[in-house]
Design a protein around this nucleic acid. Structure first.
Lengths: 203, 203
DNA sequence: AAAAGGTTTAACTAAATGGTTGACAAATGT
DNA sequence: ACATTTGTCAACCATTTAGTTAAACCTTTT
């Protein structure tokens, strides 16, 4: 068994596939392009991953597995709602600055191929909103928070953090900002977003 | 000149192309599929639109032209900021419920082919944030609004209104809602979103 | 050092895909 | 009525693309 070579080849394929799939999506990606990116023969892709679809699933899985756990900071941590919002916004934006194509990739492919995400559910258990719902209900009941459904608050937190990355080309045009100016805006949002949300929900 | 036939054929091609492109994107769409959807021969697509790319541009243009003007309600109307936010949120969500694939299509294709959006700029003049910026600055200065940059407020308004449509498959999973339950949430957001934003910015 | 077994490559295949052509039909002008 | 233009289609073409194959190539084992 040639373990060393196997590992590095498989890893370099995955890395290349990630680059190409994240930039071009399933439909726009070409197996030859992935092979070129990895600097190997196209047959290797099939040798290690059998088909384009399986290679894509491996990439999607990996991408999803890096993003999904971050939701747990909001949904399942034990801290207060304010701390969760502050922590999540800061950490999430920091993370996505380092992986700017991830959110768009995942949202796009979930829209494209809804059914295959259902496979993903059973194995990789989705984060659940249950605990967060109880926490919000409680704080609304005791008057600490303005009345709001946990679902809406969750959607709002996601929207404010994720949307700027998904819509960056549009926003850059409307705001008429350069790349660096836009990066500065994003940087500001690490604190701006949490502040905005907390102002909206605190009594 | 066979004007009647020309008009109906061209229109049915555009309609079919819209359906296919909006669901599958440029890369995922097939010319044959568009022809089938329109119930005509594939040659007709080239007869009327020359190439896949030109047909796609026609569809994108039309899609963009229906969405862009809505931004003017926020950016260039003469009403108060509160009224703008209330009006826009309600109108926009109502509109997108009727055209659920539009926002995702536009964001996705702007991410995919950034340069060709630049062509679009010169012809179809992009909405500008100038006026809105002045209005926000003024209201922050006179103490009516909490301090916030117009850019962030604009991004937030866009995010809260658009994101739920773009991320619906993900949100449905995390929130564990049925399609009808999710539709109800969206319906609630027609007022919920504006309320949330106004709470966040009013002193 | 030779067999064995996993790894890699060039060449190949079959199907799909965007686009073209030429024949033909339908409408329009004279 | 007849010629000309315009619209439509089936068949075709060139290229691209995912996937296959068989031989070569290492690396380890014996």
């Amino acid at each position: 068994m040639n373990k060393r070579k196997t590992n590095t080849t498989e890893a370099s394929i995955l890395k290349a596939a990630k680059t190409i799939f994240l930039h071009k999506g399933m439909d726009g990606a070409r197996m030859q392009e992935i092979a070129d990116e990895a600097g190997i023969n196209k047959s290797m892709l099939h040798y290690y991953f059998r088909s384009k679809e399986l290679l894509f699933k491996a990439v999607f899985m990996e991408a999803f597995s890096t993003l999904a756990p971050q939701l747990n900071e909001i949904l399942n941590a034990d801290s207060s709602i304010c701390d969760k919002i502050k922590g999540f916004s800061h950490n999430y934006i920091t993370f996505v600055i380092a992986h700017p194509y991830l959110p768009n990739f995942i949202l796009q492919e979930m829209n494209r191929n809804n059914e295959f995400v259902n496979d993903l559910i059973s194995k990789n258990h989705f984060p659940s909103i249950k605990k967060f719902k109880l926490q919000v209900k409680e704080k609304v009941a005791d008057g600490t928070l303005r009345p709001i459904k946990a679902e809406h608050l969750f959607i709002n937190i996601m929207a404010l953090n994720i949307f700027p990355f998904v819509a960056s080309p549009l926003l850059k045009k409307v705001l008429d900002t350069s790349d660096t100016q836009f990066k500065n805006l994003i940087e500001e949002r690490k604190t701006e977003v949490a502040e905005f949300i907390i102002n909206a929900i605190k009594v």
